[in-house]
């Protein structure tokens, strides 16, 4: 099973920091998703894209995890040489995590 079958994500940016929220459709899946998506797992998943620390904030009553990924956008919207300077497409890659 893929993460996109049980959760949705929204991704945003502040400077060189990427912020992605993962929300399960059904709270019965929250435990499973929180166990797998540790900050270490998410940092490893994005490989060279995320050079800094990953922090996670849990909101179990909403079935949501909020990840803050530092040094993740090649300098940020105003400085990056990449095509997707906001990192808007990265969320879709997180949805590929297998359970």
């Amino acid at each position: 099973m893929k993460l996109w079958e049980i959760a949705h994500v929204r991704i945003g940016d502040k400077g060189n920091i990427s912020n992605v929220s993962v929300t399960v459709y059904d709270t019965k899946d929250f435990e499973k998703v929180s166990e797998k998506l540790t900050p270490e797992f998410v940092k490893q998943w994005f490989g060279n894209q995320v050079l800094g620390e990953v922090k996670r904030y849990d909101l179990p009553h909403l079935g949501a995890l909020n990840f803050v990924m530092y040094d993740a956008l090649g300098g940020g919207v105003t400085s990056s040489t990449t095509l997707d300077k906001h990192g808007k497409t990265l969320g879709a890659y997180l949805l590929d995590v297998t359970f």
Partner: peptide, 28 residues
């Protein structure tokens, strides 16, 4: 929920000019 968490980092300490907002207990 997506909008609540959009670009806010720590939901319990979202710094605004008027207050440090705590959205961590918000429910819909």
């Amino acid at each position: 929920t997506e909008q609540l968490l959009y670009e806010i980092h720590d939901p319990a300490n979202y710094i605004t000019p008027d207050c440090t907002a705590d959205f961590s207990k918000v429910d819909f």
